[in-house]
Design a protein around this nucleic acid. Structure first.
Lengths: 232, 232
DNA sequence: CGATGGTTTGAGATATATCAAACCTCGTGG
DNA sequence: CCACGAGGTTTGATATATCTCAAACCATCG
């Protein structure tokens, strides 16, 4: 019995394109790996040696400038795919934000396997196209939105992405209370702001009664409509 | 003899994955279309009805906010693919910046064809992965770079992407003189700045002797090293 | 209890936006 | 041929959002 048989993301990750025989073959070239919060799986600019599926946890994708400015260019959740197949270098670092569990493959092995399994490549293509859409949408936020709009958009996005699969929620697949997998600095790095500006927007939204902040990492959306309006 | 036989992007577009028989089949479901500068091929949010290959010209991909702010989220050149296969809606508008010629397909027809031709899907996957890398890299610019760095980065990017294929250039595949396919406002929409800020950065780079501006749309990179240094 | 790392708050500096006017360039028509 | 107008661009003066620097604050952990 392979690790895949009990995998919680089995039906959502790209692996869902495979039948049990193919899955066994894929399983043979992969291995599980646990990451602690803060630990990196890949570094920006290094050779693309690994790809992986996220089984559990949240990871960030980030790039930076020479002088230390950082930009988070993506956030991945369970069932998401990470790494750069069919390419020689990794364009961004991958770091765990929470403790995480991933299913890693040598990029070469994975490439070869994928080329022989069109259904898998198709899933990967769909995922990549969706991720590109999402990323382009984020460019509007980075290039054209104010700090207030950025923070509000971020909170709405979080409330939509942190839903546990299988866990029915009242408000149209979004959750009104959640724990942020980010520090304030990391939120700033997602939004292209400074930590102070993020903090001020949080406290403003709180004193407006739009959100509540029971603790540093927890958020309650009190007035979703107002928050959506702020998101522009 | 099909239109593909004389197509100038035949060997660079995703069509290069197909043999002549398959190409004839693809040709049967596609048609050529000419676009004038300023004309749109798709609109943000509409149903995804078309996909296309760019044969000639430059097109922009853009999104905007309710209140009219715009962000250009991508720029496509000959041999690039446009549109959203395997998806129901188009996330951004597509508009010709120059007169252009594209090879369009009904999305449904293309989807069906692609699913039966894994080699084509593979090319599309490679392209999409490369575009995602490029897009994520642009996020660093939008989120973390200053106006001066943005404009310098933009000019370097242009000098690399406007090279005519097959036309050997001395300076490592970049060109030192080119005609911008963008107005100043469009450059501002790429960089997340205002037109005035873009203009001021251009005149500053000119008076520094880093670039020269023979006319509104033409740029000469006088000192590439200095420009690269400004790009951060 | 004190040290530590992250966060909030404050005061001030500054890059970029905004508003407004002058300036080209180019096509049109007298 | 020149005057005119229109669109896009540059330049100038000012406003303001966000950053920067600095201090206070707060939770957590030994």
């Amino acid at each position: 019995m392979s690790a895949c048989d009990t995998c919680v993301v089995r039906n959502r990750a790209i692996c869902s394109a495979l039948d049990s025989e193919e899955l066994a073959a894929l399983n043979a070239i992969g291995r599980r790996r646990n990451l602690e919060a803060g630990e990196s799986l890949m570094w920006e600019g290094e050779d693309s040696v690994l790809v992986a599926n996220v089984v559990e946890g949240v990871l960030k994708l980030s790039t930076g400038t020479e002088d230390g400015r950082e930009q988070i260019v993506g956030v991945v959740y369970p069932s998401d795919f990470i790494g750069r197949p069919f390419g020689s270098t990794t364009g961004h670092g991958v770091t765990a934000l929470t403790d995480a569990r991933v299913c890693v493959f040598s990029r070469r092995d994975f490439d070869a396997f994928a080329r022989q399994h069109p259904a898998l490549e198709h899933k990967l293509l769909q995922r990549t196209l969706a991720e590109l859409d999402r990323t382009r949408n984020w460019m509007l936020l980075l290039g054209r939105k104010s700090a207030g709009e950025k923070v509000a958009s971020f909170l709405i996005d979080m409330s939509q992405r942190l839903v546990q699969p299988g866990c029915a929620t009242p408000e149209g697949d979004a959750v009104q209370r959640f724990t942020l997998p980010f520090s304030r600095q990391q939120i700033a790095d997602v939004l292209g702001l400074t930590i102070e500006t993020v903090s001020r927007q949080f406290t403003r939204l709180k004193s407006d009664g739009t959100i509540d902040l029971p603790s540093r990492r927890e958020v309650i959306i009190v007035n979703r409509q107002a928050l959506a309006a702020e998101a522009g």
